[in-house]
Amino acid sequence: MPGIFVYADTVEACASLISAAYGSARGVCALTFDEKRADELGGYGADKVFLLKGDNPMQESYAKAIAALLAKEGPEVFLVGSSTTGREIAAKVAMYLDCGLVGDISSLAFEGGKTITTRYIYGGAAIQTEVLDGYAVVTVPKGKFEARKYEGKTSDVITLKVESDNRVTLKETIPLEKDSKDLGAANIVVCIGMGFDKKEDMKIAEDLGRVLGATIGCTRGIVEERHWLPAGSYIGISGTTVKPSMYISLGVSGQIQHVVGIRDSKIIVAVNSNANAPIFMAADYGIVGDMYEIIPLLTEAIRDVKV
């Protein structure tokens, strides 16, 4: 059954990929390592599910086995959920099969046997449309497509034993600090930029965050130059992408590498003393002025409307 094959390292992400592929008039086949929940994928629209089984806890180690399965089944497109693990598998599979790979797409369409993708480049300053003719691998950011349940739909689950590459071995797994894990899913984000003079000054941003019930994020410089917050806290192209209903930047200049990480925010607010800061180009509302004065005022004003 050629068609669209999908893989993601969680059932939720896999379900979202199935919905991207569903209805494209080709069958959808899902690959999963999740033994307990493999049978749920049929309900999300998969026509066929391969449950992959192996002894290695690192899913990356099965890239070659997945490539071999795809070579045998001959699907037209392989959609992969863009996690760290997914990206590595996607890149290796694309190399083993000598085909194109478009990563972290922002849109995806299937037209007459071709796959049309768009993605941001130059740190988000430009958007590029690519056409993939024939077999290709595409990675899709988390939450891009909404998963749908199909009442009464089920699919066969075929269990397949797969060989792993055991040359990289897992020694230890450490869960991320809660804050950084939540950042990508936060409903309100307050972002700390290089406009803060001292580490202690971040308190006014944290106070604002508290009245809003916001998660605190920051720019890359705060993590890498100042070491004020842990690595998981920075927002941007090489850090976390956020999509809150409101994002408030404080003393953030708005370099393109940062802005690409906040684009999916519903409302963007910027406070910066420099009227020419590029962040204002990306903002819905901007206040130009001394943030040391403005932030406490904003905290008070929000506290007033919340009670």
Binding site: I121, T129, V131, D284, I294
Partner: peptide, 25 residues
């Protein structure tokens, strides 16, 4: 290349771009 670039253009974000101008902070 295995992928064909069909189009390439600037990304323009659609935002309100309102700078709030009042007398006091």
């Amino acid at each position: 290349p295995r992928t064909e670039v069909r189009d390439f253009k600037a990304y323009i974000m659609n935002r309100k771009n309102i700078i709030i101008s009042a007398d006091t902070n």
